[in-house]
Lab assay of single mutants.
Amino acid sequence: MEVRTIKVFTTVDNINLHTQVVDMSMTYGQQFGPTYLDGADVTKIKPHNSHEGKTFYVLPNDDTLRVEAFEYYHTTDPSFLGRYMSALNHTKKWKYPQVNGLTSIKWADNNCYLATALLTLQQIELKFNPPALQDAYYRARAGEAANFCALILAYCNKTVGELGDVRETMSYLFQHANLDSCKRVLNVVCKTCGQQQTTLKGVEAVMYMGTLSYEQFKKGVQIPCTCGKQATKYLVQQESPFVMMSAPPAQYELKHGTFTCASEYTGNYQCGHYKHITSKETLYCIDGALLTKSSEYKGPITDVFYKENSYTTTIK
């Protein structure tokens, strides 16, 4: 009895394709271990004539594949690729409408935090270190965002349907971005203890939790000093293409032309909904596939993004 075979390709990165001759009487799992086709788990399936010449994702289970996976995804987590594939199996079914010149995501599976993050990423200057993220990001900007969303979920250790947080998501993504040249110098002034300067680099240099107003941050924000008295913390120097200011959701007025974009969060910790506000020729609110415009805006804002380049204080 002759062994019926077909020729397929296996890959971990969709760049390096490895030619395989597979036995049609055995499952993919018996031949390769966990195997995925377009995100779908085909591990328990036997090869079919229609699979001839198709590319299958496999887990990096030998040295060659491990090197290829690390170079593309910059992670050695053995569960990463499987999590990416199972997320992709959902995100490829989502709709990605162009809204006001940006790629958004039609609401499904509690994905409003991903839509808000995706919209924000198209408006701030950011370059990702893992080629996987950078490639998928370019495709997302062009309207094909399924891979990018699935990668975000995998890097953030999230599953489809789980509630997510924009600030946490951005923080994970910033860790995989090139923020080497970003720098922030802060000064804390206390009447009792004097003053202390701190220099922050990388992710810490672009994120701040405690106030939404970048102007206020430049002037000074009140913080408790270690001595128990009130101290003032203010920005001395900022070198970065953008800054992200966050605070627990509270009524906040966004003035046209003073910011790049913002995240609105309605609801409580267990259950809520994100919308995205962007400042173009007027203010726009993007909620999944829905767009509304207004000249002014007041609502429960939790993150505001500002364009920056270089700032030095005039406070002496």
Rank of each mutant, 00 (worst) to 15 (best):
K7L: 13
V8S: 05
T10Y: 12
T10W: 05
T10H: 05
V12T: 06
D13V: 00
I15L: 11
I15H: 15
I15M: 09
L17V: 07
H18G: 05
T19L: 13
Q20N: 13
Q20L: 08
V21A: 13
D23V: 13
S25H: 12
S25G: 12
M26R: 13
T27E: 11
T27D: 13
Y28P: 07
Y28V: 03
Q30A: 09
F32R: 09
P34A: 15
P34G: 12
Y36I: 04
Y36E: 07
L37C: 11
G39D: 09
V42H: 11
T43S: 14
T43R: 11
K44Q: 11
I45K: 13
K46H: 12
N49H: 13
S50I: 13
E52P: 08
E52D: 12
K54S: 12
K54E: 11
T55Y: 08
F56S: 04
F56M: 12
V58D: 07
V58H: 07
L59H: 12
N61K: 11
N61Q: 14
N61R: 11
D63K: 09
L65N: 09
R66P: 05
A69P: 03
A69L: 11
F70T: 12
F70W: 08
Y73R: 03
T75D: 00
G82S: 14
Y84W: 01
Y84S: 05
A87D: 03
A87I: 08
L88F: 10
L88A: 05
N89E: 15
H90K: 13
K92C: 12
K93Y: 11
Y96K: 05
N100P: 06
N100L: 12
T103V: 13
W107M: 06
A108L: 07
A108R: 05
D109E: 12
D109M: 07
N110H: 04
N110F: 06
C112L: 07
C112S: 05
C112V: 03
L114K: 05
T116H: 05
L118A: 07
L119R: 03
T120M: 11
L121F: 07
Q122R: 04
Q122C: 07
I124W: 07
I124K: 04
E125V: 07
N129I: 05
A132F: 02
D135E: 13
Y137R: 03
Y138M: 15
A140E: 10
A140S: 06
A142L: 12
A142Q: 14
N147M: 10
N147L: 05
F148W: 01
A150F: 02
L151H: 01
L151N: 05
V160P: 07
E162T: 08
G164D: 01
V166P: 01
V166R: 03
V166L: 08
R167V: 06
E168G: 15
M170L: 12
M170K: 04
F174Y: 01
Q175Y: 02
Q175G: 07
A177Y: 04
A177T: 07
A177M: 08
N178W: 03
N178D: 13
N178R: 11
R184T: 05
R184D: 02
N187Q: 11
V189H: 10
V189M: 09
C190H: 01
K191Y: 09
T192C: 09
Q197L: 08
Q197A: 04
T198P: 02
K201V: 11
K201H: 14
G202E: 08
V203W: 14
V203Q: 01
E204M: 06
A205F: 01
M207K: 06
M207Y: 08
M207A: 03
Y208C: 09
Y208W: 10
G210P: 04
G210H: 06
L212C: 09
Y214L: 12
Y214N: 00
K218W: 02
K219R: 12
K219V: 10
G220V: 04
V221G: 00
Q222I: 07
P224V: 14
P224N: 14
T226V: 13
T226K: 14
C227A: 01
K229L: 11
K229F: 07
Q230H: 06
A231F: 01
K233I: 15
L235N: 02
V236Y: 07
Q238R: 01
Q238G: 04
E239L: 09
S240Q: 03
P241T: 07
F242W: 10
F242E: 00
V243M: 00
S246H: 06
A247M: 05
A247L: 00
P249D: 08
P249Q: 03
Q251M: 15
Y252C: 10
E253L: 09
L254E: 02
L254Y: 03
G257R: 07
F259H: 03
T260I: 15
A262S: 01
A262I: 06
S263Y: 03
T266F: 08
G267T: 15
G267R: 13
Q270I: 15
Y274I: 04
Y274C: 07
K275R: 15
K275F: 01
H276N: 08
L283H: 07
G288A: 09
A289W: 08
L291Y: 11
L291E: 14
T292N: 07
T292F: 13
K293N: 13
Y297H: 03
K298D: 10
K298G: 05
K298T: 12
G299C: 06
G299R: 07
D303G: 00
V304Y: 00
V304A: 01
F305K: 01
Y306W: 04
K307G: 06
S310Q: 14
T312W: 05
T312H: 10
I315T: 15
K316V: 15
K316L: 15
